[in-house]
């Protein structure tokens, strides 16, 4: 019983759909004239809207929209590290990733569950290689990510990494390079970039890949792949993601430039 929040009933459930024959698991529609639903080619991503500086209270912030996925990220810091954590020569990144309760089809709890904790760790691991932490002794940089609407969990994670890196740049934290992240889902042996919830399913054979990269240096900072795929498909998927990362990098640079031009 969470005494600090307004309480509802102990348990509540989502009502079943009225249809008697439950719809079989959603299967991805076949390609029509080489295009997916929505007119995209298999390797295309959804249009990205990326804006920095929307959260005035934070040191740096970024808000990203990819199709219907909406993610807000705020960066506070560098701040002094707590005494209990001891002395560290290198700075540290701390991230809290949270889906808003209304962000996914099924309502989530207020407390962070293990998937959100795992994603928080993924974001830290994806961004750490790009930050010059040796310049921030005894400091921590806090990154807070809230997903307002989730349209595809893998692409949500990729959007969060991209937004977090842009927010860090907006906060003026010294970094070697921006980190761009791309995602991809395999549908019946077909890799499709940036899949929304309708397309990506957890039926047998469904798999997804999230890859984060520093495009100027070419180094991959994070790789997260789930689901069984053949070796050939996987290497092609990794290449496809690396190509997309370069495009996303261009969008990030553009939005940072716009924001700093607007400030002057």
């Amino acid at each position: 019983m969470d005494r600090r929040r307004v309480q509802g009933p102990e348990t509540s459930v989502v009502p079943f759909p009225l249809l008697d024959d439950a719809a079989p698991g959603v299967v991805a529609p076949p390609l029509q004239a080489g295009k997916r639903a929505g007119g995209r080619r298999p390797e295309d991503m959804r249009p990205i809207f990326l804006r920095t500086g929307l959260i005035s209270q934070a040191s740096g912030s970024a808000y990203i929209e990819m199709g219907r996925t909406k993610v807000a990220c705020a960066v506070y810091g560098p701040r002094q590290i707590k005494k209990q954590q001891g002395f560290s020569e290198q700075g540290r990144l701390y991230c809290e990733f949270k889906f808003a309760t209304f962000a996914c089809k099924k309502r989530r709890n207020h407390q962070r569950d293990s998937q959100e904790k795992e994603f928080s760790q993924v974001i830290v691991q994806a961004l750490t290689p790009s930050i010059r932490l040796e310049k921030l002794p005894k400091s921590v940089v806090d990154i807070y990510v809230t997903v307002v609407e989730n349209d595809g969990t893998a692409s949500c994670l990729a959007a969060a990494i991209t937004a977090a890196s842009t927010a860090l740049a907006d906060a003026g934290v010294e970094m070697i390079d921006l980190v761009a992240a791309a995602s991809l889902a395999y549908q019946q042996r077909r890799p499709e970039g940036d899949a929304p919830t309708g397309e990506n399913t957890r039926e047998a054979g469904a798999a997804d890949l999230v890859l984060a990269q520093m495009p100027s240096l070419g180094d991959v900072t994070h790789l997260l792949h789930r689901g069984p795929v053949d070796w050939a498909q996987m290497s092609r998927a990794v290449e496809q993601c690396i190509d997309v990362c370069a495009k996303i990098h261009a969008v990030m640079v553009h939005s940072l430039r716009e924001h700093s031009a607007a400030e002057q």
Binding site: H225, G227, D230, W231
Partner: peptide, 9 residues
Amino acid sequence: SGQVCAAQK
């Protein structure tokens, strides 16, 4: 079967 089921860095 030789398929890669998961990969994580």
